[in-house]
């Protein structure tokens, strides 16, 4: 189960990497807005496919008719009450027609949010920024701390701090203006630190884990090799912010706003009845 989930996570990540490849040259803010609008469009299209559009249209027509009827017979309380009751009943019918498509959309939506969140919620360290990497070690270290090697895009800042009686180790790396951002600790290659060149494309590697299921729902986690002396590793990165209008927003409100916009536009274009 774990291996299947891990493989699925890998496939999904590769798929999203491919889908989002064209946004790589854009600024992170523009890329997020574009991806959000496209997500909204995709979701509304999925809703159209999964829903009984005729039935929804019919229920909405009947609901409209009952509402108008209430307005026309305001002077007749018994009619208003009867129509009000029918309107409430029709609301339940309307919700019943929505449940199916919502269930169909739930999993893709969760996966979509997970993938986009993994790419946009954290900022890759800019040149000169420092990130703390924390390792959970399979066997506590009593003696020398693990040896850290970095590739040219990172500079290791000593020392390694051993805590919890050697069960955890933390150290710092400083991002350099260019070069690969690979880290090798005690012979284990950790996922590369995100690059600032194309943050929309490579922010997924904000951590590492050995759990495949976790990796499916949290694409920012990557698998470590079996039998690794490191049971988990995490990179501490800054939360990202997007400057839109007068404020600076985290990725979630930006995603919600622009995906809603995309869904509204898509609904009009595809004549979707919601």
């Amino acid at each position: 189960m774990d291996a299947t989930a891990a493989a699925a996570a890998s496939v999904l990540r590769s798929l999203f990497d491919l889908l989002l490849y064209p946004t790589a040259p854009l600024s992170p803010t523009l890329a997020l807005c574009l991806v959000s609008v496209l997500s909204g469009l995709a979701m509304i299209a999925l809703f159209r496919l999964a829903s009984d559009q005729e039935a929804i249209a019919s229920v909405r027509r009947r609901m409209g008719a009952e509402a108008v009827g209430m307005l026309l017979y305001l002077g007749d309380p018994s009619t208003v009450l009867r129509k009000g009751w029918r309107l409430i009943s029709l609301n339940f019918v309307y919700l019943y027609h929505l449940i199916g498509p919502m269930l169909v959309m739930a999993l893709p939506l969760l996966l979509l949010i997970a993938q986009i969140g993994a790419r946009y919620s954290l900022s890759p360290p800019a040149a000169g920024d420092t990130a703390v990497i924390t390792l959970s070690l399979s066997d506590p270290i009593a003696g020398l701390p693990p040896v850290v090697e970095t590739s040219s895009g990172l500079r290791y800042i000593p020392p390694v701090v051993l805590v919890r009686s050697g069960a955890e180790a933390s150290f710092r790396v400083e991002a350099q203006p260019s070069g690969e951002r690979g880290v090798v600790v005690a012979g284990v290659t950790l996922p590369s630190l995100p690059s600032p060149v194309s943050p929309a494309f490579r922010v997924e590697s904000s951590g590492a884990t050995s759990s495949g299921l976790e990796a499916l729902m949290n694409p920012s986690l990557e698998h470590l090799p079996d039998g690794s002396p490191i049971s988990a590793a995490s990179y501490q990165l800054e939360r990202s912010g997007f400057e839109i209008g007068l404020g600076r927003w985290s990725w979630i409100p930006v995603f919600l706003l622009f995906s809603l916009l995309g869904a509204l536009v898509g609904g009009l274009l595809l004549k979707v009845r919601v």
């Binding site: 924390t134 701390p145 020392p159 390694v160 701090v161 051993l162 805590v163 933390s170 710092r172």
Partner: peptide, 20 residues
């Protein structure tokens, strides 16, 4: 605060994240 005497360093676990 976690002190590592040998490394002459600490790790500080703040609510906002870790600091070495």
């Amino acid at each position: 605060v976690w002190r590592d005497r040998d490394a002459a360093a600490v790790r500080i676990d703040l609510p906002s994240g870790k600091l070495v």
